[in-house]
């Protein structure tokens, strides 16, 4: 505890903290916050949507990133080019453009087929969130695929050879040595990628998914306030990023770093 507290007790930091506190109090007192209590449930729903988008796209995207990376490292030539091309195209174009392509393009295309309109999937495909989820997942898979490719190639060759010399099957080598070692190498970057993904989630608001950003936009339109909702949004994202960073650092420290 003292290690955390001592750097905060330096005089200039105390003064800066006091100034920041004064600024926050001034904001709380002089700005208009009466819209907050009535909108809390909606804000909570928006926050849950943001977190669901983040968690879902990270988990599914990571699962997709593994084959993308493996194909690039050891796949046959056509698969290698395909996954390399996929990663290049997704990483070379803006996420917003991909999102709009999926939502407007695929949405309009699906509506043309009666087979799809009559199928069980149509009630979902008519909503916006599957397209937002798809775009976020594809984007995360491409960026994370690139990271995992580097991590897979970075595992020292001797370790894999040793595993093979012990008589492990290729699958066992992958499960016991190659994948854990690669994941360990990728963990620090994974934390950064997840923060980046959190910061991409508000884009889904542009296709009418009601995440936190969309709720704030709605509040801004109804109350005609410019700054207050935006400042709240900044504060919430700051907290989310902070919590994520702490959680991922905790996870990283749990993995033994001894070689």
């Amino acid at each position: 505890m003292r290690n955390i507290l001592t750097p905060m007790m330096m005089p200039h930091r105390l003064i800066m903290a006091a100034l920041a506190l004064a600024g926050l109090t001034a904001m709380a007192l002089t700005m208009q916050w009466d819209w907050l209590p009535a909108n809390l449930p909606r804000l909570w729903d928006g926050l849950l949507m943001t977190l669901a988008m983040l968690a879902g796209s990270v988990v599914v995207g990571f699962a997709l990133a593994l084959p993308l990376a493996l194909f690039q490292v050891m796949g046959p030539a056509p698969l290698r080019w395909l996954s390399l091309g996929f990663c290049t195209v997704i990483r070379g174009t803006p996420l917003l453009l991909q999102l709009w392509l999926f939502y407007f393009g695929l949405g309009a295309l699906f509506a043309q087929f009666p087979e799809i309109r009559d199928s069980w999937a149509w009630p979902y495909l008519r909503q916006a969130w599957p397209y937002g989820f798809l775009a976020l997942t594809v984007s995360f898979a491409a960026y994370q695929g690139e990271v995992m490719r580097g991590a897979f190639t970075g595992v020292p060759h001797g370790e894999l050879e040793a595993a093979r010399a012990v008589g492990m099957s290729p699958w066992l080598v992958f499960r016991r040595v190659w994948f854990p070692r690669a994941l360990h190498r990728a963990l620090p970057t994974l934390a950064g990628e997840i923060i980046l993904q959190l910061k991409s989630t508000p884009l889904v608001a542009t296709i009418t998914v009601t995440d936190l950003y969309a709720v704030i936009t709605r509040i801004r339109q109804t109350t005609l306030l410019t700054y207050e909702p935006l400042l709240l949004l900044v504060a919430v994202y700051l907290c989310l990023s902070g919590i994520l960073i702490l959680a991922l650092r905790w996870l990283e420290n749990r993995v033994p770093t001894q070689r």
Partner: peptide, 15 residues
Amino acid sequence: RAVPELVLMLLFYYV
């Protein structure tokens, strides 16, 4: 680095 670019852009634009 902690706040989404979209939110920052809106804020900077209005401010």
